[in-house]
């Protein structure tokens, strides 16, 4: 099943790259406008990031990142469609043109940026890798994990970090590699492994999926940097700029105190930064190939970064994650968006 999908994607990639030479390719933005929606690659279901409910409505911070792009182009948040992808399938899906943007908790690394023909358009969540262990094994720190069996998802940075970490510490481990996070959790709860490893943001959510959440604990260690963000194809700078600046607009809006609730009032603001942001003055949007008020549409329909965070992963959600490093630079975090001007 997985195999056929990968082969199909591989062939699509080969065919796509073949065909593209003969046709003068239209830009991604033109294609999106013609289709009438943004095709967005997400996970099969990962609480807080991208998760469908029983009616097929998607929620999550990665989903909202896509909705914001849709809002910037179409003036509402409805013109987005989602393609669920496993970690293994995601890059091929983007390369082959099956999706327009990949927003699937994807870590920005040099190899991915430089060798896949892709560009990372920013970071919408700063994460790091952690461990969840079965309480029975009596471990309270990752340095005690020598000899552990570890459940892990295929095609992730997690797979490489794990091996690096154990090697650096001179410890042994046995990896059990699954395709989806659901299978990974199942393997862990069936007792196949002592440890489950993934991006920290996920551990709490995965733990809550266990039949008995108190049977597992999350270790304090963070063993890697995982800046997650939206990815686009290399070679279409207009689209790259668009995706990059939609995210920057959301971060700047939070910094300027503009939210989905007050955005209509803010249209009358005489702060020139806000006027440029919302398009009540100037035509910055047109430089991106958009309407002058794209910033207004993004904030109106999706909200600023802080709203997006609180709604999906913040302290009042099941994930319950503190802002931490994901706070604004002037608030103790590392979010520092270039100015909209």
């Amino acid at each position: 099943m997985m195999k056929t999908k990968s082969i199909a994607l591989g062939m699509a990639l080969a065919a796509g790259t073949f065909a593209a030479s003969n046709v003068m390719a239209a830009t991604t933005l033109e294609n999106v406008k013609e289709k009438g929606h943004v095709q967005c690659g997400v996970t099969n279901g990962l609480p807080g990031f991208s998760q469908p409910d029983s009616e097929g409505n998607w929620t999550g911070i990665d989903v909202d990142t896509c909705r914001a792009i849709g809002a910037a182009i179409f003036g509402d948040a409805k013109h987005v469609e989602f393609t669920p992808l496993t970690a293994k399938e995601r890059f091929t899906a983007l390369q082959s043109g099956e999706i327009d943007v990949l927003s699937r908790n994807t870590t920005w690394t040099l190899t991915r940026d430089a060798s896949l023909g892709l560009n990372f358009a920013g970071v919408n969540y700063y994460d790091g890798q952690g461990f969840m262990v079965n309480k029975d094994i009596g471990v309270s720190d990752a340095t005690e994990l020598d000899g552990a069996t570890v459940c892990i998802q295929s095609g992730t940075t997690t797979e490489l970090n794990l091996s690096d970490y154990f090697r650096a510490k001179g410890m042994e481990f046995k990896p059990i590699v699954f395709d989806t996070s659901e299978q990974t959790v199942q393997g862990f709860s069936a007792g196949r492994c002592d440890v489950l490893t993934s991006d920290r943001s996920q551990l709490a959510a995965l733990r809550s999926k266990l039949a008995d959440p108190s049977s597992a604990i999350i270790l304090p260690n963070t063993i890697s940097k995982e800046p997650l963000g939206p990815v686009v194809r290399q070679g279409d700078d207009q689209w790259f700029n668009l995706v990059k600046w939609v995210l920057n607009v959301q971060i700047n809006a939070e910094e300027l105190g503009v939210s989905s609730e007050n955005v209509d009032d803010m249209l009358k603001s005489d702060n020139p930064n806000i006027q440029r942001l919302l398009g009540s003055d100037g035509n910055l949007g047109e430089m991106l190939g958009l309407q002058h008020d794209f910033g207004y549409q993004v904030i109106k329909h999706v909200g600023n970064y802080g709203e997006m965070y609180e709604r999906n992963v913040g302290p009042n959600t099941p994930l319950g994650l503190d802002r931490g490093v994901n706070n604004l630079w002037n608030n103790g975090g590392v979010l520092y968006a270039p100015p909209v001007r």
Binding site: S6, L13, F91, S115, S154, T156
Partner: peptide, 15 residues
Amino acid sequence: MGTTLNQTGQAVEVV
């Protein structure tokens, strides 16, 4: 075709 493909990104060759 799983991990190696994904870590190297060389889908066409690996497939």
